[in-house]
């Protein structure tokens, strides 16, 4: 059923592709993320209040415009997809338009595709005569990566087509959505998942897949490395399983591209420039990712016991600057050297 939902979404979001990408008999196994997506909103882990509100909405058969925001992997997409399925059942394919950041989503698409989809009126009965809600649902995933112009174009459409269409915007940062849109939506914040719930869910999946996870220690590690992001945790587990045939902590580090803690602590304790030069060279030769290092470093620095507040400030600031430059495509060796220098200086004057 879930696979069905997925193909439905592709074909409605896209022109029927000429290559005939019809699911063949030997379809590759679905990603666990899709396979174990919650089927109903009650399966969603840990978002009590949001689910409560949604449930009431569904009971009434009506939805407001929705804006879901919160950290990645907390069940935003799952929630709306489950809700849509509960609302529309097997006509979901016709009633839902899902667009995410990888679809073309410039202002032109908002004007043409979304608008024309929104303008279609739909009946309040299913083909088989049973009643269903008389509206359609447009899901804009990763809405914070839409341009402001496109968002502005959306605002008129949202207002005008309320009668026949509901919009659901999903984003990580609500501050990147323009205010006219946030004011038109009911906002729901998804909070980070509680650790035990994530682990329980992961365990269920592993059991269902027949994967041996031993005493579950690796699952704890998976949660740690993925910072509470359920999707990342699941993807990591699956990759590990695929690559190694079993799930081990080394395997998890390998597939998530994590930098070993040893290297991070080493970086923080560098004393002079020569050491730094060697460290950076070695680090890059081992093909670790500098941005990953910065991410982990930032957490380590903040929680570190032996650094003074001043040192933490200086280092964290530089981490932010370097991380920005890396994102713009700066060379890793330069940025790491720069950051390393700051660390050395900070270590020398506590």
């Amino acid at each position: 059923m879930q696979a069905f939902l997925k193909t439905g979404k592709i074909s409605s979001a896209d022109k029927p592709s000429s290559s005939g990408v019809k699911p063949s008999k030997k379809k590759p196994p679905a990603p666990w993320v899709e396979k174990y997506r919650p089927k109903t909103i009650d399966d969603i882990v840990d978002q009590g209040e949001v689910i409560q509100v949604l449930r009431e909405c569904l009971a009434g058969g009506d939805l407001p415009h929705l804006l879901f925001y919160g950290p990645p992997g907390t069940g935003k997409t799952s929630a709306i997809l489950a809700a849509a399925r509960q609302l529309f059942g097997d006509i979901t394919r016709d009633r839902v338009l899902e667009l995410n950041a990888s679809d073309e989503r410039g202002i032109q698409v908002i004007r043409d595709k979304v608008k024309s989809f929104a303008q279609l009126t739909v009946s309040s009965t299913r083909p088989d005569g049973r009643p269903c809600p008389p509206y359609k649902l447009v899901i804009l995933d990763e809405a914070d990566s839409m341009t402001t112009a496109a968002q502005a174009a959306l605002r008129r459409t949202m207002e005008r087509e309320t009668r026949t269409t509901r919009f659901c915007l999903i984003c990580n940062y609500v501050s990147r959505i323009i205010p006219p849109i946030t004011s038109r939506c009911s906002k729901f914040r998804f909070k980070p998942l509680a650790r035990e719930n994530v682990i329980k869910r992961l365990q269920d999946v592993c059991v269902a897949e027949g994967v041996d996870v031993g005493d579950g220690e690796v699952l704890h590690q998976a949660v740690d490395t993925c910072e509470g992001d359920m999707r990342r945790a699941l993807t990591a587990l699956q990759c590990c399983q695929r690559l190694l045939g079993k799930i081990t902590s080394e395997g998890l580090i390998e597939v998530t591209g994590l930098v070993p803690d040893k290297l991070i602590n080493e970086f923080l304790s560098i004393k002079n420039y020569n050491e730094l030069e060697k460290y950076v060279e070695n680090f890059l030769m081992e093909a670790y990712s500098a941005s990953q290092l910065l991410e982990q470093l930032s957490a380590t620095v903040v929680n570190s016991g032996h650094l003074t507040n001043k040192q933490k400030c200086v280092i964290s600031e530089k981490v932010a600057v370097c991380s920005h430059r890396l994102l713009d495509g700066g060379a890793e060796v330069m940025q790491l050297t720069d950051l390393g220098c700051t660390i050395i200086m900070a270590n020398n004057n506590p």
Binding site: M334, C341, T342
Partner: peptide, 8 residues
């Protein structure tokens, strides 16, 4: 080093 990073 910090200037190098900036100009790069």
């Amino acid at each position: 080093a910090s200037y190098a990073a900036e100009y790069e």
